[in-house]
Amino acid sequence: MDWNGWPKRFIRNASMRRLGSGRVLAAAAGIWAAVAVVSVMAGADLSGVSPEIRKEVLWNLRLPRVLLAALVGAALSTAGAVFQGLFRNPLADPFVIGVSGGAALAAVLSIVLGASATVLGLAPVAAAAFVGGLLAAGVVYRLARVRGRVPLPTLLLAGFAVGALASAFLSVLLVAASRSWSEIVLWLMGSLAHTDAWSRLRIMGPAVVLAMGLAAIYARDLNMFLLGEESARHLGVEVERAKRMLLVAGAVATAAAVAVGGIIGFVGLVVPNLARALVGPDHRDVLPVSAAAGAVLVSLADLGARCAAPPLELPIGAITALAGAPFFLWVLRRKARS
């Protein structure tokens, strides 16, 4: 039959021009590899430095850092795509269910209390942020649950409320303990300038990969959610379980990203929209393409943050917005025109 192999082949001829996700993924992989090579090469002047130290800088600072950037980008974009799908709202971002608020509060608490013990080789601030983020998500979920069901609008509102509460406590802490001001502000702005990047990768890498896997398993359910919760239920989706799994996936990915990189905004909001503009709304395409595009965007932004004004490091969140926003607008306009 002539429409064999649909939908992909069919769509290419349709008025809605979409790209195959395979091609986009291949392109993203190529770009990322180039960014990674440049990232490992660029930085402080290493001429006249002992080969041992040079090796140290390349393999233990720059390489894990670009990997960390990719991890954070992929995690935030995956979480963004999951939450946008779940809440049927293209303006949702990874921080809607309070993860960032909880993570920030816990991280700042650990800074203020001067926590110094590492957890599984993870810096105390990172460990606190991860746990705090997950805890906040858990609290939001519990608050939104009424008679065994978690209505999505309630969840969204509970997320806002818990987030607001966390940032209120955060402000109080900031004022009360302003001795650690610069450390706190830097953490809140987001940064990948770590001297222990490998140990962060070792812990958070598996967490993000698991979260992405879980999201991928529920990608088709996420498509069903776009028609409304009731429709999804009618089509045979175990709605509450799917919701729980997707929330876990999104919360773990976000908490891991925040733990290693602080609060990097914009990526999780824009990248999934970008992915949909490129490959259409099917989450089986959107999730992997988002992850790949997010990895590229954050790696590129971190390269910029590191090298735009040496030896100063610019806040990576500002760079992601600076680089991502115009590109996003261009894609939007191009799509609107076609």
Binding site: G43, A44, D45, L46, V49, S50, I53, E56, V57, N60, L61, R62, P64, I111, G114, A115, S116, T118, G121, A123, P124, V125, E183, A193, T195, D196, A197, W198, S199, R306, P310, P311, L312, E313
Partner: peptide, 30 residues
Amino acid sequence: PISWETVLARDPEVIVLVHEYGSSLEARAG
């Protein structure tokens, strides 16, 4: 503000710390 790789590259003969360092120094790469 500087990057740690700058410190590695300049490899000082003496390091002076005048803060209550939060994360352990040994965890720093290199």
